[in-house]
Design a protein around this nucleic acid. Structure first.
Lengths: 331, 331
DNA sequence: TTGTAGGCGTTATCAC
DNA sequence: GTGATAACGCCTACAA
């Protein structure tokens, strides 16, 4: 049904090996023979079978980008960065997300269907990375602190970002800054929490545990927490939320309750999702350089694929973006 | 370096074929032998090589989702739908976007690296589809009207959606509705334009070509057009924009100029991007059922992969969502 | 119940 | 310049 190299060779009256190198423009084969072969291939509609080539050459030319979900707000920026950087090589990036079931992703890696991978998915645990990563299959992990051979981390300094956001509010003159945290088991959540603590330490202040509220990174949880704050009469004057979604939820709650932002309470989020600039008031936040993160991850992987080793793990900085929700001064 | 089946077999003292079937739980092999083989595999850290298996079995177990870009607002909903539907099978969906260079995507298909594909990317032209699609490689194209063997279209009725949006404004009592179109070479843009025309026809009205403005689907183009409208003193009372981005650009321009929406001008967009619900005033729009589109595409492809043929092309309906930007009546 | 042999479609190594 | 021949790692008749 589908023509293979042998068919082309027969039709052109040459051997399979000659056909093979001829079609790859090898200068060893005479111009005229080459043309005959090319024509035979054309007539048969021949296309090389990538799988067979991969098996023989022991490389697939593909690198995997494994995510937890494709939904997140940054994801597209990240992938854009990776794609732009990979584009100069002749690798092809393919994206896959785990959804509920990460076993498929694991198999993907274990079965060597790619030459390397960039992983932003905490479900792929260290053990899998350990067994999968090798000379011939380097891996870059994003936003995780892992040190294994053939595995390089590319991180973003959430902790410093969170410290700056908190300090920004403190420096504005707010004596106490409340914190809406992420889920306890979230690595990012923990780093952002640590940054919040750091900010206090940097001024020799004590963290008041009662100022810490536990959210789940969803808009709804931010909304609920903000309502509770207002209704319990324990309104802080300033809030740092561990992500924008929760900050926006809080904004919505305060809007409904007639609590003015930033006059009554200042708010800073984290992530700089697109919405942050569109809500009213616009939301101050901490921006992660997702595009750059993608570029850095890709460049690192490409270097590893070229056989380089031993460079330092990368850590990129965040940027504080001040908008309306934290402009002004304690009322 | 990497252990293969032969190594496992040797270590277990059996032949390769026995090892092969044993590892796939074939009942033909004796319990004790199986255990010995399993242990050998375990000790060596053996993992089957997916590429080799694919070559032999002539199937990869993967289906490709080929997009133009990963950035768009719907894309993640679409992919979520596809993934949810594919999940019940044992295929694995992998996503790739062309960015600047679609030749990589074409190669991907031509080299048979997947068992099937879902394509939402107009750069992959009919000729490529023609040569690629086959019994063993069915393809679903989204939002394109293509009829080829082994290629099924899954579409969304943009035209009717655009007609309804336009009629909605007309029915509100606005005598004239301006149209901010997309780029001329856009298939969607054309369908939405046709719907706009249909709405006029349905009331026996004539389209006034001067009410049609040509945008580029970007927020900036919507902004520019709205400014021109206001500054030239040719303000319409109602506007239908071919997408939300442009509608939101117009909203921003009117906001700056003190033109009130919906009192001075009513606006309806298309797409229902997340932002539409958050801008002020919130934007009326036409929602495409992206998730359902993904589910339908995936189910269709899975049926084709099972060998079914001859079912009807799918067309899904849009939904008009009325928000603040078109509530009220001609002022 | 297990082993032998051949092949999937390609590339690589040598001869000629 | 070109052509045998042997892999790549796995699967599957068929034979024993």
């Amino acid at each position: 049904m589908v023509p293979c190299l042998k068919d082309v060779a027969e039709r052109a009256g040459v051997s399979v090996s000659t056909a093979s190198i001829a079609l790859r423009q090898d200068p060893r084969v005479k111009e005229e023979t080459r043309r005959r072969i090319a024509q035979a291939a054309e007539e048969l509609g021949y296309r090389p079978n990538g799988i067979a080539r991969d098996l023989k050459t022991r490389r697939t030319g593909m690198i995997a980008i494994l995510l937890h979900s494709l939904g997140g707000p940054f994801f597209s920026e990240l992938v854009r960065g990776i794609e732009d950087a990979v584009h100069v090589s002749d690798f092809m990036p393919i994206v896959s997300s785990s959804g509920k079931d990460d076993s498929a992703l694991r198999r993907f890696l274990l079965e060597k269907r790619v030459d390397g991978a960039i992983i932003l998915n905490s479900n792929i645990d260290e053990e899998v990375l350990q067994t999968v990563a090798s000379e011939s299959m380097p891996i870059v992990v994003l936003d995780r602190s892992i040190h294994l051979e053939h595995v390089y981390p590319v991180m973003c300094d959430h902790r410093t970002g969170a410290r700056r956001a908190t300090r920004h509010l403190m420096d504005l003159g707010y004596p106490e800054v409340a914190f809406i945290s992420g889920p306890a088991d979230s690595y990012h959540g923990r780093l952002r929490h640590d940054g919040y603590v750091d900010a206090h330490a940097s001024l020799g202040r004590q963290v008041d545990e009662r100022m810490i509220y536990h959210g789940t990174f969803t808009e709804g949880s931010g909304y609920d927490i903000a309502r509770r704050m207002a209704e319990n009469g324990r309104m802080p004057q300033a809030i740092f939320a561990a992500n924008d979604e929760m900050a926006i939820g809080a904004l919505r709650a305060f809007g409904e309750l007639g609590v003015r932002v930033p006059q009554d309470v200042a708010i800073v989020g984290f992530d700089d999702i697109r919405l942050a600039n569109y809500v009213t008031p616009s939301l101050s936040t901490v921006r992660q350089p997702m595009y750059d993160l993608g570029v850095t991850a890709a460049k690192t992987l490409l270097r590893m694929l070229k056989g380089e080793r031993g460079f330092a793990p990368a850590e990129l900085q965040t940027e504080l973006i001040v908008r309306q929700s934290s402009t002004g001064f304690p009322g």
